[in-house]
Amino acid sequence: MNGGLVLSTICPPQWTLRWDTKTSNSRCRIHHKLKTLASSADSAVVSGELLEQVDKELSKGDDRAALSLVKDSHSKPGGLKAFGAARQVPQRLYSLDELKLNSIETSSILAPKDTTLGAIERNLLIAALLGFISAWNAFDFGPEELLYITLPLFFLWTLDTVAFAGGFGSLVLDTIGHNISQKYHNRVIQHEAGHFLIAYMLGILPKGYTLSSLEAFQREGSLNVQAGTVFVDFEFTEQISQGRVTATMLNKFSCIALAGVATEYLLYGYAEGGLSDVNTLDGLLRSLGFTQKKADSQVRWAVLNTILILRRHEQARTLLAKAMSEGKSVGSCIDVIEKNIDETDI
Score class of each variant (00 low, 15 high):
107 S>G: 08
141 F>H: 12
240 I>G: 02
272 E>H: 05
136 W>D: 15
247 A>T: 12
42 D>C: 08
313 H>E: 14
44 A>N: 13
327 G>P: 05
61 G>C: 06
121 E>V: 10
275 L>C: 09
210 T>D: 03
21 T>E: 15
64 R>K: 13
110 L>R: 03
251 N>F: 01
290 F>L: 07
183 K>Q: 14
274 G>P: 07
136 W>Y: 11
226 Q>K: 08
314 E>A: 15
118 G>W: 05
124 L>Q: 15
109 I>V: 07
64 R>L: 11
169 G>P: 04
165 A>N: 12
272 E>C: 06
180 I>N: 05
210 T>H: 01
102 N>V: 00
216 A>Y: 02
127 A>K: 10
106 T>M: 14
139 F>I: 11
333 C>N: 15
330 V>I: 15
72 D>E: 14
84 G>M: 05
143 P>Q: 07
173 L>F: 05
45 V>I: 11
344 T>G: 05
89 V>I: 08
150 T>M: 11
80 L>C: 08
249 M>G: 07
118 G>Q: 07
144 E>A: 12
139 F>M: 15
120 I>P: 08
79 G>P: 01
166 G>T: 05
117 L>T: 09
344 T>N: 10
72 D>T: 14
297 S>Q: 13
98 E>I: 02
288 L>K: 09
136 W>L: 15
182 Q>Y: 09
266 L>K: 02
10 I>V: 15
112 P>T: 07
81 K>S: 10
191 H>F: 05
85 A>D: 01
329 S>K: 10
69 L>Q: 07
111 A>L: 12
9 T>H: 08
22 K>S: 11
144 E>T: 15
144 E>P: 03
22 K>L: 13
8 S>K: 12
247 A>Y: 10
170 S>P: 00
52 E>K: 12
119 A>W: 04
79 G>D: 02
338 E>G: 07
226 Q>T: 09
49 E>P: 00
258 L>C: 02
189 I>R: 00
250 L>W: 06
275 L>V: 10
113 K>L: 09
85 A>R: 05
110 L>Q: 03
218 Q>C: 12
325 S>H: 13
278 V>W: 01
32 H>M: 15
291 T>L: 07
58 L>W: 00
22 K>E: 09
139 F>H: 15
5 L>N: 11
29 R>L: 13
333 C>D: 07
38 A>D: 09
11 C>S: 07
199 A>P: 04
235 E>Q: 13
246 T>L: 09
162 V>D: 05
220 E>F: 06
124 L>P: 10
279 N>P: 00
212 S>K: 01
309 I>K: 00
